[in-house]
Design a protein around this nucleic acid. Structure first.
Lengths: 351, 351
DNA sequence: TTCATCTATGCTATCGATTACACAATACGT
DNA sequence: ACGTATTGTGTAATCGATAGCATAGATGAA
């Protein structure tokens, strides 16, 4: 249909050069007010729209950032992405999303792709199997901001935004203790991953700080899903000294455990208490709403975006900023006889 | 750090011209095998990466598509996006996501932005308030594929991918009738919206087809949330001829209704049956899992992407393809005494 | 009046890759 | 051996916008 109007079309129509048009549109002071107005009016009349590709090529800035997550449709990640989008869009950036499906090779390929697409920055939550860091090094070599969120790896020159898993677990465990529980078990997933190790440490430290004995038998590793949660709960309840509470590093594990406990007639929370982690949407919809540690994904996304913007603005190379957000504990029925949902509020902290 | 290598750098290194390098890299047949190999080897050695911005400007194809949804972090939409991404990524496209937050003005602005960014296509689920269609017309004028998914509006020359809401509702209602229910109520949301009107029609037609009386009192409009669902259920149960089942056009409404019914001691499903719509993740996690109509979001995303790819490939202007997907009914405990659940889902950990 | 100084605009190269066209060098047919 | 095909590369324009340098004309100071 109608070819797109360019500054040359406007120039021709006004019998000036493209340079003049460009300057007028960019409010360059070295242009007469009369010409500027004329150009603006004509541009509008001709329905001119700046071709951002051309600007991008010329300036070397695409105004695109790549966001890489394992799965887009996980509540946690999609919410982070929402935060990122809301923060970057007003600054004129577009957000390109990619998913790795937990595949390290795909992660590496995706990073390459984004670099070829000339993104101005990459925000990523790495896969579980990420070992080789060459692709990240390439990003740094090109002097493009790289920011890890939630799942990170230690790398010099890379900023990260995470939630304080240790503290979240600590709070959750303390809460169970405050509720009168003394034999608290812990469902973990894969302690080779920083986040789960930190949750484990927070759990353990809370026990120690309160003078409780740390019981290795009470720590069960499982795949983060409902069936595994049931199995783990069964295993724990079959111990000679069964626990009276569970702090699960995953909401799915908590749900599975609760399902099993109910099936054998245990009363929650009067008889047994459970706290999960992640504050998945379903935790609050249950007939027995599940207490859970919230990781403030929107804030995490916004913060990661802000860190990116700071780095883009500054000329410094390889800034290394580590932001650790404070989680909040959402206390619900699964752990508290008080029906009211309480949220221990905690603003963000930066270091 | 190290400036990016361009074909000129390679050309200089080999004492040929950039044209030769370009041809060699693109497997142009008019280049000698020896030169081609040499160029490829040198390109690799110099760590050459094609600048897609340059290609995009030259070719007029950015290999980016814009995807616009009301909210990125709604399970339904994020899953559609996943489908889109998985279909387009292998074809070399990047997916730019934007959200409107149900704001018509923002929708219009976003479309403009994407056009300026020279996207090759736009896939969108419109806002509830979208009335003015000028921004869509602009997309068509530029001859860029525009595809509606789920929430659409009737526009000449625009393709769409939706789920058959009418049939989904029809199936759900039939199912309730098959379960022995004879007084089936319906919770709707806003019948000004096509999707809810269609669900209503499917519900009504099923009743008529089975020879049941359609009772206007049994249709309650509500905001799609849990509290409203409770209120609506109360209102229905307080009727002189209360219903024995509810087909809700939203899962949240269904959840609210179930919560209320349980609170007044009704037994589900023996005493009362409920079916929802959307197959929200939480429906399957409940202690009493909720039957729900699945809108196959992944397939919807993939299909929308395929329609886009078809249009890009074909030279035809303004193809108008309307795809209507068949929904599936996931029967769970809230509506069936048979415990067997037929569904496809694999909940996993959050992060 | 005359030279210096602005002002407003034009000219042109540039970002990186692609491609139509041109042409030299070789190959081939009769 | 001579004209024609074929092969492999170079030249230069192009995509759209920007910006450094150049310059015509206006303004101003002495």
């Amino acid at each position: 249909m109608s070819k797109k109007t360019t500054i040359y079309d406007i120039a021709k129509a006004l019998n000036v050069t493209a340079a003049t048009v460009s300057r007028a549109l960019n409010n360059n002071p070295r242009i007469s007010e009369a010409t500027r107005q004329l150009v603006l009016k004509t541009a509008k009349k001709m329905n001119y729209k700046q071709n951002q590709l051309a600007v991008a090529l010329k300036s070397g800035k695409s105004k695109n950032v790549g966001v890489i997550v394992p799965y887009i449709d996980r509540s946690f990640f999609s919410t982070i992405i929402r935060g990122i989008e809301e923060e970057l869009n007003p600054q004129g950036y577009h957000v390109i999303i990619c998913q790795t499906l937990e595949d390290g090779k795909k992660e590496s390929d995706t990073v390459q792709n984004l670099l070829n697409a000339q993104v101005d920055g990459i925000l990523i939550s790495i896969t579980r199997q990420t070992k080789n860091l060459d692709h990240f090094q390439q990003v740094l070599n090109k002097n493009i901001p790289l920011i890890f969120f939630d799942r990170k790896t230690n790398m010099k020159g890379v900023s990260s935004v995470t939630v304080d898993d240790y503290q979240g677990a600590y709070m959750a465990t303390m809460h169970l203790i405050d509720q009168g529980c003394s034999k608290i078990a812990h469902l973990t997933v894969d302690r080779n991953l920083e986040i789960y190790e930190n949750r484990f440490r927070g759990y353990k430290q809370a026990l120690i700080d309160k003078g409780f004995h740390f019981e290795p038998d009470y720590v069960v590793a499982l795949k983060s899903d409902i069936e595994a949660g049931k199995d783990a709960a069964k295993k724990l309840l079959d111990l000679s000294h069964p626990p009276d509470a569970i702090f699960s590093a995953s909401d799915f594990g908590a749900l599975g455990a609760i399902t099993y406990l109910k099936s054998i007639g245990r009363q929650i929370p009067s008889d047994f208490r459970v706290v999960g982690f992640s504050n998945e949407p379903f935790t609050q919809f249950m007939e027995l709403p599940i207490s859970s540690v919230d990781q403030c994904p929107i804030l995490m996304g916004k913060t990661a975006a802000q860190v990116f913007l700071e780095q883009i603005d500054s000329k410094e190379i390889h800034i290394e900023k580590k932001v650790v957000l404070k989680p909040t504990l959402n206390i619900r029925k699964s752990s508290s006889t008080l029906t009211v949902e309480v949220q221990t509020s905690n603003p963000q902290s930066t270091n």
